[in-house]
């Protein structure tokens, strides 16, 4: 937070949150990135349901899933729950 933040007169009454948290990218927290093998993947969409961050999107027009690395925190739930083990977690190096 910078010192130039708004004062109490400018902020919304009672400090009501005004922005969607989708503006806050949590993807830079991660140390592991999910990698998917599209051949093994059966599109069961369990990973979409279990992701705590909503970082896996189902694209009906493509008939495929998409990882949103802007929000993925790299917890590895998707890799652990994948019934066909199509997802692996790769260590991220700078």
């Amino acid at each position: 937070m910078t010192v130039k933040d708004k004062g109490w007169k400018e902020i919304a009454p009672a400090g009501v949150c005004s922005k969607a948290s989708t503006d806050f990218l949590t993807g830079d927290w991660k140390t592991y990135t999910p990698l998917r093998d599209p051949v093994k993947c059966t599109r069961c969409l369990l990973c979409v349901a279990f992701c705590p961050d909503g970082a896996i999107h189902w694209r009906p027009e493509k008939g495929d899933i998409e990882f949103d690395t802007r929000y993925c925190k790299g917890c590895g739930i998707c890799a652990n729950e994948c019934p066909t083990k199509a997802i692996t977690m790769k260590f991220e190096q700078e």
Binding site: A20, S21, F24, T26, P52, G54, A55, D68, Y71, K73
Partner: peptide, 10 residues
């Protein structure tokens, strides 16, 4: 929505 600040694997 996404972008909440729960720990990884929450």
């Amino acid at each position: 929505l996404s972008g909440h600040r729960a720990c990884a694997g929450c």
